[in-house]
Every structure is written in structure tokens, then in C-alpha cells.
């Protein structure tokens, strides 16, 4: 089922955070090792990666283990649980309108085709409580 309504009128980019760009399996040396999604931010400006409060995925109804998630940003890869820690650097900005690539490591990858994907993205801002955006839709994984 496609989500059609925002969770609130002021949820800014909520309908657009889960992009269809570069949605595909990941291969290494001839083996499928996982798959990935590209996200855009749920706010009207960029934020440091350390201000990400949560990225939670459900694929075909099953929640993805955070331990299996990696974030790729400007040529570097971070284990998702690490960006949530209190010693995460504060000068690595998720650019406004820029893609944040989330890799889900999974031996054998995922079957090519249509999957139902749900994302919750929480970001901390300066003057209002953490903004939690939520979107779900059918996505074609290449």
C-alpha cells in the first residue's frame, strides 16, 4: 500500500526522503553482499551526521537490524551505530538535497524486483524537538 499523506502538515520533505535513485543490490568480487537506498534529508537545511537521531528500515515488513546498516557519505563509510554515539564528529554535513547512501549488508543481497519499504528518519534540530519523518512505498530494487 502506498502512503499518500504526510504525518503532519509541516513535515517539510517527508514524502521525498525515500528516493528511487540508485536503489539496487551491492556486489563485491562477484557476490551479492547487500543492497542500498539513497535518502534525502527531512529538513529545510543540511545537518551534521551526528544530528541523525534514527534511521530505521522495514523491508517487506521486516525490520532491518541497525548492526547491518552502513552509511556512505562523501566517499567514506560509517557503521550506522557509530554515528549515533556521543563522540561522532560534528563537522560532517549531510548536504541539503544531497543523497545519503544507506547500505544494508546481507549475504546474497535481496531478490531483484519490487519490495515494500518503510523508513523512519529522525533528525535533531536546534529549536524544536527531533523531527521524525516516516514514509513507505513499493520500490524496485535493481
Amino acid at each position: 500500500m502506498e502512503q499518500t499523506r504526510r504525518t503532519s502538515t509541516n513535515s517539510i520533505y517527508e514524502p521525498y526522503i525515500l528516493t528511487d535513485i540508485g536503489c539496487r543490490n551491492i556486489w563485491e568480487a562477484g557476490h551479492r553482499t547487500g543492497y542500498c537506498f539513497n535518502l534525502t534529508i527531512n529538513y529545510y537545511r543540511g545537518l551534521p551526521l551526528s544530528c541523525i537521531d534514527q534511521i530505521t528500515f522495514w523491508v517487506d515488513g521486516e525490520q532491518i537490524d541497525p548492526e547491518d546498516m552502513y552509511i556512505q557519505h562523501r566517499g567514506r563509510e560509517y557503521h550506522y551505530p557509530d554515528i549515533l554515539k556521543d563522540d561522532m564528529a560534528t563537522d560532517l554535513y549531510w548536504e541539503f538535497g544531497g543523497l545519503l547512501r544507506v547500505i544494508i549488508k546481507k549475504k546474497g543481497g535481496i531478490a531483484q524486483g519490487i519490495h515494500h519499504v518503510k523508513l523512519i528518519l529522525g533528525t535533531r534540530r536546534s529549536y524544536t524537538p527531533t523531527m521524525v519523518a516516516q514514509w513507505e512505498k513499493d520500490m524496485t530494487i535493481a
Binding site: R45, L47, P48, S50, C51, D53, L84, K85, D86, M88, T90, R124, R125, S126, Y127, T130
Partner: peptide
């Protein structure tokens, strides 16, 4: 613009 971001980490 300077937004005075302070909530850099979840617990700090």
C-alpha cells in the same frame, strides 16, 4: 544564517 545548533548528539 546561524541556527545555534546544540543538540549534536543524542545524549549530549
Amino acid at each position: 544564517d546561524h541556527f545555534s545548533d546544540r543538540a549534536m548528539w543524542h545524549d549530549k
